[in-house]
């Protein structure tokens, strides 16, 4: 197959993927999203003759718009614009998961500091304030008192981009020092890992330690359900343990998997390529 890798930065994840694809003899075109211009009628030249594009844009905004154009051109893209649209926005993700019956932390959205403060007081302390767009644990606030809440809200209202005035307030889930990441392809888990830290944020990007997580039936079912709910694709589904059960707090649409590959028995990039091959075959059948 001829695969286009849409990127702006080649991380170790992309390098692993490129290596696995090339070793199998697939043609790969690296397409730097920063060099592209998207018009209505014809795709940029770099997309000529690709069977499938894998969106690995580092910037969520670029990912959302570029995949929308690819959809319009009829060029198959992983993940789809619809999936990117939901996963890139925490409000849309929470609503989508809840509507699908997937357990997800209780959340309220408010648009003024006064109404946000009411949400915070209703959840009680601690609770969590998150930006609606963002990753790697940045700008997350564990709110432990009313005075802290007032200060954080004032800062967000005064200093922030308009998106920071969409106050996303969430119940604090007292996870057992770790959360879980399941990488799945169309809902079928490839591997899972636990990310542990003494800090309340357990993102690998924040330096959490990682270990393989043996995916049980419940986590498998939730990964499948969450994947279906957001439109499928190659996804990183984040779960927290809630004493005998799980809650899904995030679904990542340009998932990083290098940390998972380091700890998992499965060869993650190889399995991703296995799945991409089936997607490309399906695209050929559909196009024929």
């Amino acid at each position: 197959m001829h695969l286009g890798i849409l990127y702006s930065r080649i991380r170790r994840d992309e390098k692993l993927l490129l290596s696995a694809l090339r070793e199998r003899g697939h043609e790969v075109t690296k397409i730097d999203v920063r060099e592209q211009r998207f018009g209505f009628d014809t795709p940029p030249e770099d997309f000529d003759s690709v069977d499938l594009v894998v969106d690995r844009c580092l910037a969520t905004s670029r990912s959302r718009y570029a995949t929308r154009f690819l959809d319009a051109y009829g060029i198959p893209v992983i993940n789809s614009a619809a999936t990117a649209d939901v996963c890139a926005d925490k409000v849309k993700t929470s609503l989508t998961l809840d509507s699908a019956g997937i357990p997800t932390p209780a959340t309220e959205v408010a648009f003024t500091t006064d109404s946000a403060l009411q949400s915070i007081e209703r959840f009680g302390y601690p609770c969590v304030l998150k930006p609606v767009v963002g990753s790697w644990g940045r700008l997350m606030a564990k709110v432990e008192s009313r005075s802290a809440a007032e200060a954080i809200l004032e800062h967000k209202a005064t200093l922030g981009h308009y998106e920071h005035k969409v106050f996303y307030v969430q119940d604090f889930v007292p996870k057992p020092g770790r959360d879980l990441r399941v990488v799945a392809a169309d809902g079928v888990p490839i591997a899972g890992m636990a990310r542990s830290s003494e800090h309340w944020l357990t993102n690998a990007a924040k330096g959490a330690s990682t270990a393989e997580f043996e995916i049980d039936d419940e986590a498998r079912g939730l990964a499948e359900g969450a994947s279906t709910a957001v439109g499928g694709g190659l996804l990183g589904i984040d779960l927290m343990e809630t004493g005998g059960s799980y809650t899904v707090h995030e679904v990542n649409h340009t998932v990083e998997f290098k940390a998972l590959d380091d700890v998992a028995e499965a060869d993650v990039p190889e399995q991703v390529v296995d799945w991409l091959e089936t997607v490309a075959e399906d695209c050929e059948v559909t196009a024929a």
Binding site: S8, R9, L58, A59, T60, V133, S135, W136, R138, V255
Partner: peptide, 23 residues
């Protein structure tokens, strides 16, 4: 530094981290 050519290798200062970067 961002690698901008590989034959021979050239590098430039990489773009600064932006707010919507991530996964």
């Amino acid at each position: 530094l961002e690698i901008t050519e590989t034959d021979p290798v050239t590098v430039e200062i990489a773009p600064e981290l932006e707010e919507d970067w991530g996964e």
